[in-house]
């Protein structure tokens, strides 16, 4: 279905329908950004005004960044998502390689276990995992935010599927060249798997940057808040009194991912599509 195959009327109709829906979809984003520039009195006024009358951008963003440690929240978000992703690669890539390319007893049982675990939703394990961290005294730590996600059966599955397509000859050649199996994982499989790894990385970072459920449960200390917790906390703190700064805080918390998405749209959509279809 490529090319201009619609008549002029159908073409206009397509734009009318798509544009209408697009306006509804993009409205919250536009309104959020616009209101983050407005004064409180203008926000509360009865008349609808799209463009701010008096600009309060500096005040609102300053408030968002200073009334709560918003930068700290962003930093926490970066730390948690990146460490989760790095550990996921470290743990799951070798396992995926073993499943795809090594012959050992118990391989099919292990694969079955991975496939079974794919069905488990994250929420289902929350209570025992929470109790475990409670008993271990690890609640309210970075560890509690990161450790449960270091294992990604989905990552194992996805990378295994990719590794299956890597020719056996390449691995045998590396063995003849004198590489160890661990060397093969990091020096041959990892570089060839970059496209799949990018897709998985996007999936992982988006999921954990936006995660609210688990951080909400295990973290009480403000110093460990991730951006979603931070915005929710900001709202509770300032409810009804300062919408401008609240919209500024919301804008700040979604900005990193949305900007990354707009810059690398195709990669993001491919990554989410690939992972969406396999998940």
């Amino acid at each position: 279905m490529t090319g201009n195959r619609l008549g002029p009327f159908a073409r206009i109709l397509r734009h009318v329908v798509l544009m209408t829906l697009a306006v509804v979809i993009v409205a919250p984003f536009v309104w959020m950004v616009l209101c983050s520039f407005k004064t409180q009195s203008e926000i509360l006024s009865a008349e609808i005004r799209i463009i701010p009358h008096t600009w309060a951008a500096v005040e609102n963003y300053t408030a968002a960044l200073t009334r709560v440690p918003m930068l700290r929240f962003l930093l926490n978000g970066v730390i948690v998502t990146l460490v989760i992703f790095l550990l996921q690669v470290l743990v799951n890539l070798p396992a995926a390689y073993a499943l795809a390319k090594l012959r050992f007893r118990g391989r099919s049982a292990f694969l079955g276990l991975v496939l079974l675990c794919l069905l488990i939703p994250v929420h289902a394990t929350a209570i025992p995992t929470y109790i475990m961290f409670y008993k271990a005294g690890l609640l309210n730590t970075y560890a509690s935010l990161i450790l449960p996600f270091t294992i990604s059966v989905f990552g194992i599955f996805l990378m295994r599927q990719f590794f299956m397509t890597v020719p056996d000859d390449l691995i045998d050649a590396a063995r003849v060249d004198g590489m160890s199996e661990i060397g093969i994982v990091w020096r041959v499989m990892l570089p060839t798997a970059v496209p799949a790894l990018v897709a998985f990385g996007i999936f992982s970072v988006v999921a954990h940057w936006n995660d609210y459920f688990w951080p909400l449960i295990v973290v009480a200390d403000q110093a460990l808040y991730t951006p979603p917790l931070g915005v929710a906390f900001f709202r509770l703190n300032d409810q009804g009194t300062s919408y401008g700064p609240l919209m500024a805080a919301a804008t700040i918390s979604i900005a990193p991912l949305v900007i990354a998405f707009l810059l690398a749209q195709r990669r993001f959509i491919e990554g989410i599509t690939l992972t969406g279809m396999k998940a």
Partner: peptide
């Protein structure tokens, strides 16, 4: 002995070149 310790070399049907490495690096790898 592991393959590398046998001091042999093998040429594969699919050539099995490391796709991410240059020709020079491929030849140098062993």
């Amino acid at each position: 002995l592991r393959p590398a310790a046998r001091i042999i070399a093998m040429v594969f049907q699919s050539y099995a070149l490391y796709p991410h490495l240059s020709v020079l690096d491929n030849i140098s790898m062993p």
